[in-house]
Design a protein around this nucleic acid. Structure first.
Length: 358
DNA sequence: GAGTCGTGGAC
DNA sequence: TGTCCAAGACT
């Protein structure tokens, strides 16, 4: 163990954040170990997602499904509905697939090595190392966005990401502690999340302020460098939102692959830079409810929302009418639903509504 | 290796 | 308003 990693562990002992999935340093010292199921679940939820956003989902999932066997036995649509709003929905599909593999092929126990964990769906280099270190105290090197930033500054690496990834991984491995590896892994990430932040790093409070090369050079806030990102195009589309007299809504399940895969949605056009032809899924007195603006990772969407009340007898070929829990909808579809509801309640204002406009 | 894949908060 | 960013994985 290096002097630096020892210093970081001392910092962590007094500054570790309290998180629902975390076994803190004092509890670990008392012999407690985290539940691999909870570590895995939290790490998957935390992929490209903030701690603030994950907390409520983690508590809800562990309440509904306290162990991997319970989750493996859940119905797909229920899990997708509970994941709604958290984003990156392939994670939810992989989560279920992984739970079922762990139960069926591993006797309900997660593999306890990085290599074994890597075979699971939805578990990549980072997550495998994180579970191995945190749940099984193996001295694996975790490299997430926090660690990349901390290492780029600590060693003053000016090579832009993602090209610098391999170099930063090697530098991180050089600092990884063989003592208390689970605490160390969380300590580096906590350092990046609370001190060595992307903007305005709090170098004065950093346990690594002395050995940090970027701080010595006065360029900590400039690192890590990143390659320029492509501009986001704008795509257009239309959704048709029909409410039957008995309160049922016409929804459809999206295909498993692709954007919002496996999630509930509204019948509508595809989304393209040239407005697609929009033909309603059924004949009704459609009103233009307004336009939803929503930004995905790689494009902006302007979604025209059409709404209608239909008779109980109406049938559609594209999906089914049924009871709707709006919380099961991904966010963009929930925005469209809110807009349709507003139009149906206030038909005189139809077309004036905007969602996603400041 | 470069694209794809969500969302909400900070600035 | 727009841009960046968050405990990445998969193709």
């Amino acid at each position: 163990m290096t002097a630096e990693s020892a210093e970081l562990l001392r910092w962590y002992d007094s500054h570790a954040r309290v998180l629902p999935w975390r076994v803190g340093p004092a509890e670990r010292a008392a012999g407690m170990r985290p539940d691999p199921y909870r570590v895995w679940l939290s790490e998957v939820m935390l992929q490209q997602t903030t701690v603030a956003a994950v907390k409520a989902y983690f508590l809800r999932f562990t309440e509904l499904w306290p162990n991997v066997a319970a989750l493996a036995g859940a119905e797909d649509d229920v899990v997708m509905g509970e994941w709604a709003g958290l984003g990156y929905y392939a994670r939810a599909r992989n989560l279920l697939a992984c739970a079922r593999i762990v139960v069926r092929n591993h006797g309900g126990r997660f593999p306890d090595t990085r290599e074994g964990l890597l075979t699971l769906p939805g578990v990549g280099d980072y997550t495998a190392a994180a579970i191995a270190a945190i749940a099984f105290d193996r001295p694996e090197t975790v490299v997430d966005g926090n660690v990349e930033r901390v290492m780029a500054r600590f060693h003053a690496v000016s090579t832009p990401l993602p090209k610098a990834k391999a170099e930063l991984t090697a530098l991180a491995a050089g600092l990884t502690s063989g003592v208390r590896p689970g605490d160390y892994a969380q300590a580096v990430m906590d350092l990046g999340a609370t001190i060595c932040t992307p903007r305005n790093p709090a170098c004065g409070l950093c346990p690594w302020r002395d050995p940090c090369r970027a701080r010595a050079l006065g360029i900590a806030a400039e690192l890590p460098r990143k390659a320029a990102k492509a501009a986001k195009p704008t795509r257009l589309g239309t959704v048709w939102i029909a409410r039957r007299a008995d309160g049922a809504w016409l929804t459809e399940r999206r295909p498993d692959k692709g954007l919002l895969g496996g999630m509930l949605g509204w019948p509508g056009t595809g989304w393209a830079e040239i407005a697609p032809d929009d033909t309603p899924p059924l004949q009704a007195k459609w009103q233009a409810a307004g336009e939803v603006r929503h930004t995905f990772t790689h494009f902006h969407l302007r979604l025209k929302v059409m709404a209608a009340e239909v008779d109980r007898e109406v049938e559609s070929g594209v999906g089914g009418f049924g009871r709707l829990n709006p919380g099961d909808l991904p966010t963009v579809m929930r925005k469209a639903h809110v807009m349709a509801l507003t139009a149906l309640e206030n038909p005189e204002n139809a077309g004036e509504n905007r969602v996603g406009f400041a």
